[in-house]
Amino acid sequence: MKAPKFNYVKAESRSHALQLLDELGEDGRIIAGGQSLMPTLNMRLSQPDTLIDINKIPDLGGITLDGNIVRIGALTRHVEVANSPVVAEHLPLIAEAMPHVAHHAVRNRGTIGGSVALADPAAEMPACVLALGGTMVVESVNGSREIAAEDYFHGLYETARETNELLVELRIPAKKTGDISVFMELAQRHGDYAMAGLACVARINGNAFEGLRLVYFGSEDKPTLASKAVSAVIGQAWSEECKEAATKALEDDLDPMANLQGSSAMKLHLQKVLTGRALDTAIERAEAA
């Protein structure tokens, strides 16, 4: 199929984009890497009045370490994130997740901001940003605001970003000494959206988890922080019993949506398996470190 008719404006600058967003309201649609938007256009599933192309805005990309915060411009391509020494050193969770994001050609063009803005519940980056306690910086003609990841993801493709706002940057706390991260995903084929997935950040003391964030994706309507499973683990010596308690508690954290890939029960089962594996791996990594 061919895309329906639409208008197209190339935003020359951030302020230009914000002005367009403000003027067009619901009629405007931002295109960044386009790796998710273009298929829906080609299939005529979305029929925007005007596409606002932000690809040529000069100061929307790039990765910098700013104190203990890694700042990633929304327009930064996945490939840049994947190859970034800053990300490798300070955001190892994201570095570990990156090979799971689609395929080479898609990573060359797709952007991290686009992934976070779209908020596909099976996508890797929203889960990572939430696990790492990142903050989204959005701007509008009225100014800018920061939204914590916990408050950002509202549901299926729904976020706290208003129609007239542009996601401009992700601010993600850099790994602290001793932080352990683990990323795991189950997809039937390489690069597919996850059937189940887990982004895990932990602080481990000896054989026990002192701090833990478990974010699940691919099963709920948004990346989901598990609190019950975490409570079952924190402060306990890691053991098979502890693992069992955590996976049992996960039943209260998650209520997976069935889809073509499988039933709710299967997704819950897989998330449980991943939980055990990820926490085992975290302990191993802590020991190795």
């Binding site: 199929m1 061919k2 197209y8 190339k10 295109i31 386009g34 790796q35 273009m38 298929p39 080609n42 299939m43 596409l51 192309d53 690809n55 490939v79 395929h103 080479h104 050609a105 898609v106 060359n108 063009r109």
Partner: peptide, 26 residues
């Protein structure tokens, strides 16, 4: 034409991309 098959892959500014997931104007 929805970015899965890769038959349309072309190189744009040195990087391979899905040609169907990019507008000509881009």
């Amino acid at each position: 034409e929805h970015g899965v098959c890769g038959a349309c892959s072309v190189r744009v500014d040195g990087a391979v991309v899905r040609g169907c997931l990019m507008l000509a104007v881009q």
